[in-house]
Structure formats: C-alpha cells, structure tokens
Simulated scan of single mutants.
Amino acid sequence: MEVGPVKVALIGTGYIAGRHAAALTGLGVEVVGHVGRSGVEEAAARWGGRAYRDTAGLLAGEDVDAAWICVPPDAHGDIEHALIAHGVPFYVEKPIGVDLAVPRRVDAALRASGVIAGAGYYWRGMDVVPGLRSMLAETPPHLVRAAWHGLVPPVPWWRVAAGSGGQVVEQATHLYDIARFLLGEAEVVHAVARHSPLAEHPDLDVATVSAATLAFDSGPLGVFTATCVLHATVDAAVEFHCEGRKLTLTTKFLRREDGDGTHDTPVGRDPLVTADERFLAAVREQDPGLLVCDYADALRTQELCCRVRDVAGTA
C-alpha cells in the first residue's frame, strides 16, 4: 500500500453507514466512493468520493484500500466475495447474515485469501471492558442476565425474518457477543419465542418476544430476553451476578454494585470509533490481531444467535 491516506469506501447509505462516515472524518482517510440504491449521491456530496450503484462499479472505478459494508442482513455475500476477489480488506457491520450459509462461505473465502476482515461488534471496544474483564476474573459470575427490550426499528427490512433474521440475530446479537467475548462459548439449554401482531406494523413476521437459557462452558448460567413491543429502547444491558457484587454493562456506563455502594463509570469514547480506528490500524499494519472483532469470531456469535433462534422455533 502506498504511503498516504487510506482510500476507503462505504457500501450502504443508511444510519450505520452515516455513523461510520462521521467517524472516518477524524481518522485520516480519504473517502473515495459510496455504494447504494438510494441516498448515494447525497452521501457522496456530504462525505466526499463518488457515487456508485453497485460494488462492481466501485471496484472498477476506484482504487480502494479498505471498505465498510453497512447493508441489511439479507444483502451479504456477493459484496464480500467481490471485495475478497480484489484483495480489499473490509469491515462488515453486524449481523453478518440472516443465517449461517452465507457467512460460512465468506469465512472460508477469507481463510483462503488472507484478506483482513473485521466485524461490527463494537461493544468489545468500550473503554470499560478491560476493567470489567478484570473484575470478572476477581469474582467470577454465577448468573448472567441480558435484555434488549425496545421497539420495532423504522426500516422495513427489519420487520421481516427473511430480511433481518429476527431480533436475536439482528439486534440482541450485541448482548450474546459481549457475553461470549468475556465468558467464552455457551450451550443453548432452552429457548422460546412468540409472535404477536402489532397494529402499526401489519407486515411484521419476526418474533416479538424471546427468551433463552444458556450454559457457559466457563460456569455461569445466562438468561437472555428480547422484545420489540415497546415505545423505545428501555433496556440494552448485560448483568453479571457475582459473589458479593453485581456488574452491569450498558452502552452508557459500567455499574458496580457491592458492599461499598453503587459506582458508575462512563463507557468513554464512542466504541464504534474505536473499532473503526483499530480496523484501519490492522489494515495499515497488516495485523488482524489489532481488530476489535474479526470475521471468524463474528461467525461464532452468528452461530450462537442462530442456535437460539432455531431452538426457539421462530425468528
């Protein structure tokens, strides 16, 4: 790679692509292109670079050093394989698919090619996570309780299982991933899900509530719940119940509750920015060990979430 700014492209023009574009403005890169079916000209005008309708056009028209894939879950596969064929490292937003077939093929292609690929499990990049890991080593958890209780997102693809994979795969996956990251692998002991019609979303076919019991190989049991029937996201947290204290991680703080009282530590810097910065460092140094999460590990989280969904019997 030539010395100078890393030339990057964003594939997708939705909310999360905008967050990455904003983060990249402070990370010393040159945005050379955007790919999207709508809003692509606006994205190019705002963030720089040229607008393209597909990945093939982008790769034919630009020298791309790294790409961000920010597309709906059902749009994965062809994009990743095109980038791998051109040797372009990529950062793919979670989830990496609606099921396992496409991600497993992508993972095999990555292993064969050696292309660096990161994934958007950016909770791992929170400033407070190393401290949380240390506290869990001091007092190992007996019980993990995690909840993602919120609303139906406004994008139409989310409401359809074939488009999103359902709430566990698309949204609550952050909870399953950070638990895996801190505690290791888990067996799905039991899972159940229910679908209730919602008047505001007549086309919704994903589960509106789910619950799963997990047994982690490291010892603790876990109870994970999710629902999308509320007016807003009121819970997005993982609780670790340890001997003598409770530790709670949210997107805003790490809370420690013990005999000394309650202590909150802000999560600090936006972990999405940290994940982007570390992906760029991995690309520059050709060192996948710098990634917050690599594709192979994201696949293991995808496998866990799909097991929960499959045991429950509905997305």
Rank of each mutant, 00 (worst) to 15 (best):
H195C: 08
L204C: 10
H174I: 09
L175G: 01
V128F: 01
R124L: 08
E187G: 07
G166Y: 13
L182N: 06
G163T: 09
L182Y: 07
S196N: 09
Q171M: 13
V155R: 13
V209T: 09
T213A: 11
G120D: 05
G118M: 02
A179F: 03
G125E: 07
M135D: 07
V206H: 00
T213Q: 07
P140L: 15
G163L: 02
I178S: 04
H195T: 07
Y122V: 12
V155G: 00
W157Y: 15
R194H: 06
D177E: 15
D177N: 06
W158E: 08
V160W: 01
L204W: 10
T173Y: 12
L132A: 07
D127R: 11
H201N: 01
W123K: 15
W123I: 08
R124I: 07
D205R: 05
L198H: 01
E138Q: 14
P154S: 14
R180P: 00
I178E: 07
P197G: 08
E138Y: 02
A199W: 13
V160Y: 00
V192L: 09
M135A: 11
T213I: 05
P130K: 10
V155A: 11
P153N: 10
A212G: 02
A119N: 07
A146R: 04
A186W: 00
P156T: 12
D205H: 01
M135K: 03
A179E: 09
G120R: 10
G125H: 01
L204H: 11
R145Y: 01
A161F: 09
V144Q: 04
P130A: 09
V152R: 02
A211H: 05
A193E: 01
A119M: 11
V152W: 03
R194M: 01
V160N: 04
L136H: 05
H142C: 11
W148Y: 15
L198R: 01
V209M: 05
V209Q: 03
L143I: 13
V155L: 12
S164N: 11
T139C: 15
A211P: 01
M135G: 04
V168M: 10
H201P: 02
R133V: 00
T139D: 14
Y176M: 03
L132T: 03
R194N: 00
G125D: 12
T139E: 14
A211R: 11
E187C: 07
V129Q: 04
V144T: 04
V128C: 08
W158T: 10
V144F: 07
L151A: 14
L143K: 12
V144W: 03
V169E: 11
Y176S: 08
